[in-house]
């Protein structure tokens, strides 16, 4: 499968990339290409120009700054999943990036490209939304940040303005005493999540003090399970409490449902309750 033809522009810096986007009508940003190239092969995307940011070394790397992990947009999934900093401060992100695709895909796919593309069946956005991450953006008007929960505006649509580039993600470190888990039902061929659940719970004195639960794959954007979170907080995180919390998820699906030949929307919602319960059990066992 050949994509439609296009022109190619390799950027040496973020500022140059922003300028190249402004100078080339119909241009798209290319990072690892593991979302964009498949879309181009299917002609779902046919950008007139590609601005390749994949060689900007400053966009690569992971650091801990003032209690937050800062991960450059070009950092690949393999690097994030195996990072001791990420495993210590945001283990649910290490888990989610460790189950994207397969080893070769994880070597090339980048966190910035992944969240900019915003596939609702992809693992990292679910974990990042649960973690309360923010996305750092550079554009003609300077830099700004967008909350992960405000970033997707619809199926494969996001809050980036014209000629803006996502340069990295900032992830607040999990509080001590928190437990988290990412649990996924992978599509058997594509490895995308039919359902993916990121759950974070904190426990103090035997009682749940906070909870953050996000589900991917069921709706066109990640679903925050507010009813589940409300049922968890104040509970003892025992089996009965987790059963009751997981059952509350039915009321949280209020967006546009996803459905395909492999999994209907009804099946996805049913599986979401199952995988949610598993995620809550693991997260609770790791808390305290």
């Amino acid at each position: 499968m050949y994509p439609a033809n296009t022109t190619y522009h390799r950027a040496g810096s973020v500022a140059e990339a922003v300028q190249l986007l402004a100078d080339n009508e119909g241009a798209k940003v290319l990072a690892g290409g593991h979302s964009l190239i498949p879309a181009m092969k299917l002609r779902l995307a046919a950008p007139q120009a590609l601005v390749d940011i994949g060689h900007i070394a400053a966009l690569r790397g992971i650091s801990l700054e003032g209690g937050s992990l800062v991960i450059g947009a070009l950092t690949n999934f393999a690097t994030i999943a195996s990072s001791e900093l990420v495993q210590a401060n945001a283990p649910v992100l290490a888990e989610a990036t460790g189950v994207v695709g397969d080893p070769a895909v994880r070597n090339r796919g980048t966190i910035g490209g992944n969240v900019s593309h915003g596939d609702p069946a992809s693992d990292p956005p679910t974990a990042l939304t649960a973690l309360g991450a923010t996305y750092n953006v550079s554009g003609p008007g300077g830099e700004r940040s967008i909350a992960a929960s405000d970033f997707p505006t619809g199926l494969l649509e996001n809050a980036l303005q014209d000629n803006e580039i996502l340069t990295g993600v900032s992830v607040p470190a999990l509080a001590p005493g928190s437990g988290s888990a990412y649990v996924k039902f992978p599509h058997p061929a594509s490895r995308y999540a039919v359902v993916g659940v990121a759950a974070i719970v904190a426990s103090q004195g035997g009682s749940c003090s906070s909870a953050s639960v996000v589900i991917g794959g069921v709706e066109t954007t990640p679903t925050r399970a507010s009813s589940v979170e409300a049922a968890l907080v104040g509970s003892d995180l025992g089996n009965d409490a987790l059963d009751a919390a997981a059952a509350a998820v039915a009321g949280d699906f209020t967006g546009d449902p996803m459905s395909d030949i492999f999994a209907s929307d009804e099946y996805r919602r049913a599986m979401a309750a199952v995988y949610l319960r598993r995620a809550l059990g693991i997260a609770a066992s790791r808390a305290g």
Partner: peptide
């Protein structure tokens, strides 16, 4: 189509030559 690209495996059907 797996090859080694700059030291790690990559699927060469999902990389552009120009990249």
């Amino acid at each position: 189509c797996t090859v080694v690209l700059d030291g790690s495996t990559a699927k060469a059907c999902t990389v552009l030559t120009v990249q």
